[in-house]
Design a protein around this nucleic acid. Structure first.
Lengths: 224, 224
DNA sequence: CAAATATAATAGTAATACTTTCATAATTGA
DNA sequence: TCAATTATGAAAGTATTACTATTATATTTG
């Protein structure tokens, strides 16, 4: 997996950037440090000026890579879901039993991400924290329909479609495979959020995690 | 119900406003028109200046009611969840069977709100649209823990707790009542959002709605 | 009807979200 | 290798946002 991942270049919609950040050291630094800065001060307080100060670069140089911070966040999210998709496809590839595949897939999309050292400039564990905290902001905008048309959420949708396909494999009679898939992906992020900030309305904690909750749930919903 | 609702004054955390908007015509106009303006241009593009222009009042006058637009949104959300809670409590009060109560409760929290004319200055149907589009922004902030301590999300949490209680009544052995309740409330909003903006990853549409999805889901999860 | 309170009008500040211009540094390819 | 191209940095500028403060004028209330 290490080798494969290091050979794969994650493809991101070209409309999300002005200049591809993967093509230069400054671009990579923007990605690397924006993840850390968004995690530390939150997306709402994040500005290109602050990022520039942090990386010792001028604000205007960052604008040569990204039009605005919204597109940077969509870029980071696309990267995340692309990486997720890769791990998902890989993890189910060695299973033929559809039930096993589903459990693997759900584990992948609902588990907290522990840092893996496979990519140099991206800390996946912190990126996962950002996704839990900020991903919903990428599409809760007035421009969502336009941006959806332009494919900004394409990879995220593809991940959910992959999960949907496996759900249908497990139980072709189940009527709500798409809604179940989108509920699990979004819901797992929400349960992680609640674990950290509103413990009183979730059963998840240090010992029980969203994966346990969703394993139990799909067993009851899909087992015939 | 009409009568009861018109007699009840929905209580909102005092920390959310500088001056209670229910105590003056301008205050009520701020509430009424902010709902319409947020719906029309989106919360991100909404400013007190624009609201002032719309209602023929000065920006500075609005600041005498709300410190900032974030607190206004939390105020509107609190109002919404308080109204929800009221309808929920009312709708289950004439049922003794816990399964019937659960179905009623889930219908209330997952159905699209059709405008009801019980309150004069608040359009609940449009407020429901705002909640679907913007509610997640109220707590996806760096200040969430502080604001949670101050009780900003108290009513929302109470609604979820009420649902949790009914779930436990239906099936005391089920291990994830809290997570199920929070998933349903959040998930229903998400499914409504997907219906409007990302049809390809939901089964909900004009004929099937989130309520159908969750009725089926709880039946499979909780029926013994 | 006077006093208190609410609202409006205006101006001002600091930060945000950019854009533009020009200088300089680094890279590339003939 | 050196000229041309491209990338980055520095600085300044604009419009908008998110407020605060001051003063004047309405409106309400006791």
């Amino acid at each position: 997996m290490d080798q494969i991942l290091s050979n794969i270049k994650i493809q991101i919609n070209e409309k999300l950037y002005v200049k591809d950040p993967e093509t230069s050291p400054l671009g990579k630094k923007i990605i690397e440090e924006s993840i850390l800065l968004i995690d530390s001060i939150g997306f709402d307080n994040f500005t290109f000026k602050k990022l520039g100060e942090k990386i010792g670069s001028n604000e205007s140089s960052i604008y040569r890579y990204f039009e605005n911070k919204h597109k940077l966040l969509v870029y980071l999210s696309s990267w995340y879901w692309s990486w997720m998709e890769y791990r998902l496809v890989f993890s189910i590839s060695n299973h033929s039993d559809s039930w096993e595949k589903l459990k693997k897939a759900i584990a992948i999309v609902t588990e907290k991400v522990e840092d893996d050292q496979k990519t140099l400039h991206i800390n996946e564990s912190i990126l996962n924290k950002i996704i839990i905290a900020e991903f919903t902001k990428t599409f809760h905008t007035k421009e969502v329909d336009q941006e959806n048309k332009e494919g900004f959420y394409f990879i995220y949708i593809r991940v959910i479609n992959r999960l949907t396909t496996i759900i249908k494999e497990v139980n072709p009679e189940y009527l709500y495979a798409k809604s179940l898939a989108s509920s699990i992906v979004e819901g797992a992020m929400h349960q992680h959020f609640l674990t950290d900030h509103m413990q009183s309305i979730t059963d998840c904690n240090q010992t029980i995690n969203p994966t346990n909750f969703y394993f139990d749930l799909i067993e009851k919903i899909l087992k015939k």
